[in-house]
Amino acid sequence: MDSTIIASAAINGLLLGGIYTLVACGLTLIYGVLHIINFAHGSMLMLAMFGVYYLLTLLGIDPYLSMFIMVPAMYVLGYLLYKGLIGRLSSGKDENILLVTLGLSILIENLALMFFKGDSRTILVSYSDRMIELGPTLVPLPKLISFVVAMVLCALLGLFMQRTDTGRAIRAVAKERVGARLVGIDVDRIFAISYGIGLATLGAAASLMMPIFYVSPTVGHVFALVAFTVVVLGGMGSFLGAIVGGLIIGLTESFGGLYLGESLGQIGISLIFILILLFRPSGLFGARQ
């Protein structure tokens, strides 16, 4: 096959992977700290995407600027959701939490269906069709922006976890709950903060995605499975894993589409998901269980 086609598939895959990374960062943070598989992740992303959509169509706020509204809004939503619902129910078995987040996602998805109807929507901004020359290929400007900003945000999140007191507290709770409580960390608050940050990354992701993707009430399904795959591939709870995993999955999707065609090409992600769970459930960078 022509090398420029391969190179362009690689570039497109990497750019796509940047977005996946950001979505997966939130999921892996929630898992790493709370040991909850947040099945509502996809529907929360969908909610945030509708937020970005309406901020533009109703108030005329540029999707990238709306990040400054969506990130805090999603953080508050996550914080309250944990305090009000998930935290109260999380004492039981991990399957129960999975079912609660599943119930939440059914609820949110169908509420969205009620209010926004089933059709998919896209937005049009002045830079939607701007192409940038990148090596051998042309890429749409929004894709390039999404990649760069996603990577910067991931790095900032990593820095936050390393350098700030809250970040240290989160890491302490992730490692050793009882010990963290003994040294005076309010563990329940850290849980709520972590869930909030997990959803806040979705607010950012939604802003970056709206100029590229369409939104519909069921759009979360697609990204949820991708995000789970990224997190499992990278290792549950690992940030480095989320970045590497995100890029690998982006490439897999891009090359799958190139070699296997539109329909069968999607199979790569699910197969990787199954194979990793079967043969290396701790993922590439996860701690062995």
């Binding site: 619902l85 129910l89 079912l99 609660v100 599943l102 119930g103 939440l104 996602s105 059914i106 609820l107 949110i108 998805e109 169908n110 509420l111 969205a112 269906l113 009620m114 109807k117 089933g118 009430p217």
Partner: peptide, 13 residues
């Protein structure tokens, strides 16, 4: 559209 599953999702929780 979707109301029945809204009720069902809430019921599950």
């Amino acid at each position: 559209q979707g109301l029945s599953l809204v009720l069902y999702g809430a019921l599950l929780v």
